[in-house]
């Protein structure tokens, strides 16, 4: 093997091995342990293969964890609630993000970079702290309640924090840049002469938007929505900090199952089902990403 082949091999094999070791194999383990029973030991689960036993009994797997998950109300509610919250917060994010992306795309080129920079900047500031910022605003003695009390609009402080409302708000706020950037990328490529042409021919602004801009921006809508929906579904920090005790999103339930109950096999099964729910949106996202790169080439 000559030196060039060696270099080629090095470039491919090094990251490959790392990802196999620290990404793929760990998933295999989650899958494996989701078929095990919890025991009081370290590690706290039974092994699938036990070679100390007789050949016929050396393999042991159980579907108990999955059966339990499907039967138990807590988990069913958690999964459904996560889906609901992720779906509606994605819609809200789209409603808030679309006008912003549109306005940036139509701004003069000098301003555009500045506007985009201001969208990206909060993303660099700690996620945890941005979620925390809302705690100070929404709490019973927080900014909003103080303001409303002082102008006499309410008598009693409103319960804003630790509700579903605050979870929605937190998700929309935290993931807004993920929605705006792909939308902007699509809208910036549009030829706004088309809009002007339609307007010149007498179409009303809303009609132009509905018939021209909106259909052309669908790729951006889809990637932006998936970039919000996918992480929102498994979100842990936002429901843990802004949600009430009953805000049972699955990411939080998994975390509690793991750290609170120390039931690792059940937590693994929770993770596998969450992953199955994400397979379809992830594949759609991958499909659109590939199409995007193909177009660029």
């Amino acid at each position: 093997m000559n030196r060039d082949d060696l270099w080629r091999r090095f470039v491919i094999v090094t990251p490959y091995l790392w990802l196999l070791m620290f990404f793929l194999i760990p998933f295999g383990l989650v899958l494996k342990i989701s078929f095990a029973d919890p025991i009081v030991a370290m590690p706290p689960f039974t092994s699938l293969f036990d070679f100390n036993k007789a050949p016929g009994e050396s393999f042991y797997a159980t579907l108990d964890n999955y059966r339990f998950l499907l039967k138990d109300d807590l988990y069913r509610i958690s999964y459904l609630k996560s889906l609901k919250i992720a779906f509606f917060s994605t819609c809200l994010c789209l409603l808030v993000g679309y006008p912003i992306a549109y306005a940036i795309a139509r701004a003069s080129p000098v301003w555009r970079n500045m506007f985009l920079f201001l969208i990206i900047l909060p993303f660099w500031i700690s996620f945890l702290l941005r979620v925390y910022a809302w705690m100070g605003i929404l709490s019973t003695n927080g900014v909003i309640n103080n303001l409303l009390l002082s102008i006499g609009l309410i008598e009693q402080p409103l319960q804003l924090l630790y509700t579903d409302f605050s979870v929605y708000l937190g998700i929309v706020y935290s993931y807004l840049p993920f929605m705006v950037l792909p939308l902007y990328a699509t809208l910036a490529k549009l030829d706004f002469d088309l809009n002007d042409a339609a307007a010149d021919l007498g179409a009303k602004p809303l009609t132009v938007f509905r018939d021209v801009t909106l259909p052309l921006s669908i790729p951006g809508i889809i990637s932006g929505s998936l970039l919000v929906f996918i992480p929102a579904l498994g979100e842990f920090v936002i429901p843990a900090l802004l949600g009430g005790l009953d805000s049972l999103m699955i990411g939080r339930t998994l975390y509690d199952e793991f750290f609170g109950n120390r039931d690792w096999p059940l937590a693994s099964a929770v993770a596998i089902i969450l992953l199955l729910m994400l397979v379809v949106p992830m594949m759609v996202f991958q499909h659109y990403q590939l199409r995007e790169t193909d177009q660029r080439e």
Partner: peptide, 17 residues
């Protein structure tokens, strides 16, 4: 796009194993 709870759980299981 992987939820962090899953990545974290899987890595922990790897380290323990």
């Amino acid at each position: 796009v992987m939820p962090e709870v899953i990545t974290g759980l899987s890595l922990l299981l790897l380290f323990v194993s």
